[in-house]
Amino acid sequence: MASDGVVVEIGKVTGSVGTTVEIPVYFRGVPSKGIANCDFVFRYDPNVLEIIGIDPGDIIVDPNPTKSFDTAIYPDRKIIVFLFAEDSGTGAYAITKDGVFAKIRATVKSSAPGYITFDEVGGFADNDLVEQKVSFIDGGVNVGNATPTKGATPTNTATPTK
């Protein structure tokens, strides 16, 4: 695992066909100046998982989280898009600690492993708008004895992609 920078880890949970599971997305290594904004994309298989919603985690402190935390689910493109932009203008609602960034709610549709993997990152910046190093650890849903650990090695991303 990367020793510096922010680590975004997609949790690994267990479920069975027809059940709804909650998959946490963790941030670790949050910089001392916090995270003022970030955007990134995960990939998944809508034939295996139906993403039914995404909720902000406990490290989102904006009293009205829909102003700073936004997501979009595109089953036709097989992606989930995340956007966080601190909304106070003063840094008061920045992410300042490690913990759960988001909770992905999904219904298991198939007995195949439900991988959720890193696809791309736009950027991560602290309260001074300084770009942060970030790496990703894939996860998803274990169905029966299947284990979604494909790509469990962190993917280092030093520069934003478009």
Rank of each mutant, 00 (worst) to 15 (best):
K33Y: 01
Y44S: 06
N145M: 07
F69I: 03
V108N: 08
A72P: 00
D62S: 15
K103L: 11
V8H: 00
P46A: 09
P56S: 11
K133G: 04
V21Y: 05
P56Q: 07
I23A: 09
T96M: 04
V108L: 10
A85E: 00
V134E: 02
T161Y: 12
I59E: 04
V134N: 04
N37Y: 01
I59H: 14
F40R: 00
I10A: 04
P63T: 13
K97A: 11
E50L: 06
E131L: 01
K109R: 12
D39Q: 01
A146C: 09
T117N: 11
T157H: 12
A92D: 13
T19K: 13
I60V: 09
S32H: 11
D55Y: 04
I23H: 13
D138M: 09
K109Q: 07
Y44M: 09
V17Q: 09
I59L: 07
V6M: 04
G122K: 00
R77F: 11
D119G: 06
V134D: 00
G34E: 04
Y74N: 00
N156L: 11
E22F: 13
S88E: 02
F124D: 00
N47G: 13
K78M: 04
T71N: 03
I73A: 01
F136H: 12
A125Y: 00
P160V: 12
G139S: 12
F27R: 00
T19V: 04
A158C: 13
T107A: 09
I10D: 13
F101Q: 11
G15S: 06
I79H: 01
T147Q: 08
A36Q: 01
I95A: 10
G140S: 13
A94D: 03
S88I: 03
P63A: 14
G34K: 05
I80D: 15
T20S: 09
S32L: 07
G18R: 07
G99I: 09
K150V: 09
Y115Q: 09
P56G: 10
I35T: 03
V134G: 02
A152E: 10
N37K: 01
F118P: 04
E86C: 00
T20I: 14
F27Y: 14
P154S: 11
D76S: 04
G151E: 10
D70K: 01
I137K: 12
I116L: 05
I51V: 06
I35H: 02
S32F: 05
G140Y: 09
T66S: 07
I10K: 07
R43K: 10
T117P: 04
I23F: 05
I73C: 07
I35K: 01
V8Y: 00
T153K: 05
G144R: 12
A36S: 02
V17S: 08
D62Y: 15
G114Q: 05
T149P: 11
I137A: 14
V13C: 04
G144A: 13
T20Y: 11
F27D: 11
S111W: 03
T66Y: 15
Y93D: 09
T71G: 00
D4V: 07
G11S: 08
A36W: 00
K103W: 13
D126I: 00
N156I: 09
T71Y: 04
F40V: 02
R28D: 10
T147E: 13
D58W: 11
D4G: 04
P46Q: 05
S110F: 07
G89C: 03
D76K: 01
V30L: 13
Q132D: 01
D126L: 02
T117G: 07
L49E: 02
K133C: 04
I137Y: 13
D58H: 13
F124H: 00
C38S: 08
E22V: 04
V6L: 08
E131Q: 10
G53R: 06
I54F: 02
S110L: 12
N64I: 05
K103H: 10
Y74H: 02
T157P: 12
S135P: 04
E9F: 02
D87L: 15
G122Q: 00
K103E: 06
E9I: 08
R28Q: 03
P160K: 15
I60Y: 15
T161M: 10
V30F: 02
E9K: 09
T117Y: 08
D98T: 10
D128W: 03
T14E: 05
P24V: 03
T159W: 14
D58N: 06
V30P: 10
I79N: 01
A152L: 12
D45F: 12
Y74Q: 00
T14R: 09
I73F: 09
I35L: 07
T147K: 12
G34N: 06
Q132L: 09
D128S: 08
A72V: 01
